[in-house]
Design a protein around this nucleic acid. Structure first.
Lengths: 170, 170
DNA sequence: AGTTTAAGTCAGCCTTGTTGACATTCCAAG
DNA sequence: CTTGGAATGTCAACAAGGCTGACTTAAACT
């Protein structure tokens, strides 16, 4: 919007409308939107004395059941000490189960317990509800664009991790 | 991509394609993209022993020079104690200047110093470069959709704050 | 047998959120 | 004019969750 700068000659002209000011607005929108994005789960987690770190672990274990600790580490992008602290409380609280690997006994495979799945649903429902509402408000075309920009904003390795999760729940 | 579901007749049917699975993908995309979004500034900040909190403060002070602490508080959504700690170091390091209000001496008005503006540029340049690249890769139509969804995902008060920043730098 | 890999632990640090207590300033009601 | 409450900002102390580094245990590879 704003300056409708149409029909310039060259093909690189999709760049012309990207003023620094508009990029800044995109940056701020990302900041504010991310807050909204995490707000609902945060409220639920606060009651349980958990944090976002627990949410992330639960989310990805649910997404890829049986994943190993190392695998999770790569996805979450934290150190194993940091993850371990969170994982330990989740296992102690009976939300996550850790099974020794059959093929490779060094590995631990992670699963959600029934209670874990319950909390996952609760968190996920809240977050999806907001997502759904936003998608609905913006319309289907906007959603496609949204996903394209997000995808392009990731680091390459994350893009791989993301499409791996998308396709096969190996 | 995937299912190109074009030219539907009515507007309400935009809901049909929002399976839980697709919402989940959106959620994950948001998570991974936010990491990319902050990655470049984070690297710069790490060298200076600053964190994201410093970046946010610098960003919004630059955006609305002369803003009060209270104002900034509302935008950043943290407690004043938390902000104060960050602000103190920025002032001590000569990046931010705090002037006592003329009308109301309780208020402090915040400005970036020359050094502050310099760091702001450096951080902003990095972040904008990634944003610009993502926008370019996704195309102008996608950008519009991206912004629409983000806007719809914010809490209402943040939407107000955002458009206030967009329009007048009061 | 020796090396590498997966996982876990302990200790200690930093950033950045929180609450609680407190000083200063302003303003309005008595 | 004074006084008490509200607003603004500061200081202190604590917790979550990142980080690094050093180390152990067990299993797998070579």
């Amino acid at each position: 919007m704003a300056d409708g700068r149409t029909g310039s000659g060259f093909s690189g002209d999709s760049l012309l409308f990207l003023t620094d000011e508009q990029l800044r607005q995109g940056i701020e929108a990302m900041f504010f939107a991310y807050r909204g994005f995490t707000a609902d789960p945060d409220r639920i987690l606060a009651e349980l004395a958990y944090g976002r770190a627990h949410h992330r672990a639960i989310h990805f274990i649910n997404r890829a059941p049986g994943t190993t600790v190392n695998n999770l580490l790569a996805i979450l992008g934290v150190t194993k000490q940091s993850l371990n602290r969170v994982l330990r409380t989740l296992i102690a609280d009976g939300l996550v189960e850790s099974r020794v690997g059959k093929a490779d006994k060094r590995e631990r495979h992670l699963f959600l317990t029934e209670a874990g799945r319950e909390l996952e649903s609760k968190l996920s429902d809240a977050q999806r509800a907001r997502m759904r509402a936003a998608y609905k408000e913006a319309g289907p075309e906007a959603v496609t664009g949204f996903r394209q920009v997000l995808e392009a904003m990731m680091d390459v390795d994350m893009r791989r991790a993301h499409s791996k999760l998308r396709d096969g729940t190996s």
